[in-house]
Nucleic acid binder design. Structure first.
Lengths: 211, 211
DNA sequence: TAGATTGTTAATCGATTAACAATC
DNA sequence: TAGATTGTTAATCGATTAACAATC
């Protein structure tokens, strides 16, 4: 029943996947699961699952297993999904629009409060209920609304310039989709990269070694 | 100078990032770098960098360091970037179009040979030089062109059905952008997931723990 | 109670770091 | 040659797995 002080990043990185699997189970009406069953579904060891869940206090019951909805909520709490971090999206091209349309911000602890682009063609249009503003007005917007995170959906060529500007304005957290590391120039920023190119290289390696 | 037989996945997962940094250095005209310099840029230890590079044979020179273009090429070879794996893209919505337009397939060891959708509005249109075909014709296309990988840019609601169909046709590798694990039903498939929701949860956790 | 399954400690395994001899 | 930096072995650290007592 004792909670660990510092949960290691190895464990944290597994939590979203647990959350996803538990949501799936809950949707299918499963209310109870043992570490053994879950380990088979997720291809982990039952030992690891018990170790992981025990990092944040025991939620199981000997002889019974874990309560699915309760466990899902607890993992959500650890991840901070009850938060409502204000964020803005920069770049309303295809990628930006895909994210605006399909990302369930509220379920993930965020709230999208603005989207920006520099093309007169898209400024003023509304995408998935969110109006696209002129990127030139970002400074004023920040002053009035203080978003804490920026989702960068801009091309590699401009991401350096834009992240510098946003950093200068005061934003310290980025969700970055470009093939560039913002932390290179801003080591203290909290950056979560979705490096699709890197992901595709890894896939290429795996296909090669399928012999 | 001896090559390791089995390179561990911990090392492999770092290779794309090395490749990216070396490409950047090369673009800036840097031809030579020591493990120490690179370690400072990448925030790794020099020891780890030397260990990693030595997995696939020594490419450095004592007292000098590493040759940047040569090292980049060697890492590319390990990753198999000289390949030309044929792939198809399913779902020409915003996400699919972003990938068609910006992913440098050839540099990453792939070749996009077809894109498919089921909406009459997009079938027949050309996006970034690639014609969108009717998803109903995928079976015929596979028989004629045998792509080995499918990029799935379809919503969560249909990804299960579509991946089942593609698996049944003969495709065994997937680059998956939906919030679902194809390996659940097809354990032998090679699946590389880009779980954006998971990534955003991790970001949320990190923002929470910034105290 | 007996069976099942957790929580937790101990053992193992693998990955990272440190150290230094080899050598350019 | 002297200085620098690799390649490689040994030491450390952390994460995973195994085992089992606690207990529902």
């Amino acid at each position: 029943m004792q909670k660990k002080e510092n949960i290691s990043m190895s464990v944290i990185r597994r939590l979203p996947r647990y959350h996803r699997f538990l949501s799936e189970l809950e949707k299918n009406g499963v209310t109870r699961i043992s570490s053994k069953e879950l380990s088979e579904k997720m291809r982990l060891t039952a030992s690891q699952i018990r170790q992981d869940f025990n990092c944040f206090g025991g939620f199981g019951q000997q002889g019974y297993g874990y309560n699915v909805p309760q466990l899902r909520v607890e993992i959500g709490k650890i991840l901070g999904l009850q938060n409502n971090f204000k964020c803005v999206l920069i770049g309303a091209g295809n990628l930006g629009r895909a994210i605006m349309g399909h990302m369930p911000f509220e379920q993930l602890g965020f709230q999208l409060i603005g989207a920006f682009d520099n093309s007169p063609k898209v400024i003023g249009t509304v995408i998935s209920g969110c109006k696209i503003s002129d990127y030139q007005d970002i400074r004023k917007f920040y002053a009035e609304n203080s978003p804490i995170m920026a989702i960068l959906c801009v091309p590699r060529e401009v991401v350096e310039k834009i992240s510098d500007e946003l950093y200068e304005i005061g934003i310290r957290s980025f969700w970055n989709f470009s093939h560039y590391d913002i932390s290179l120039k801003h080591p203290d920023a909290t950056v979560e990269n979705v490096h699709m190119n890197d992901s595709m290289m890894t896939l290429c390696y795996r296909l090669c070694t399928l012999e």
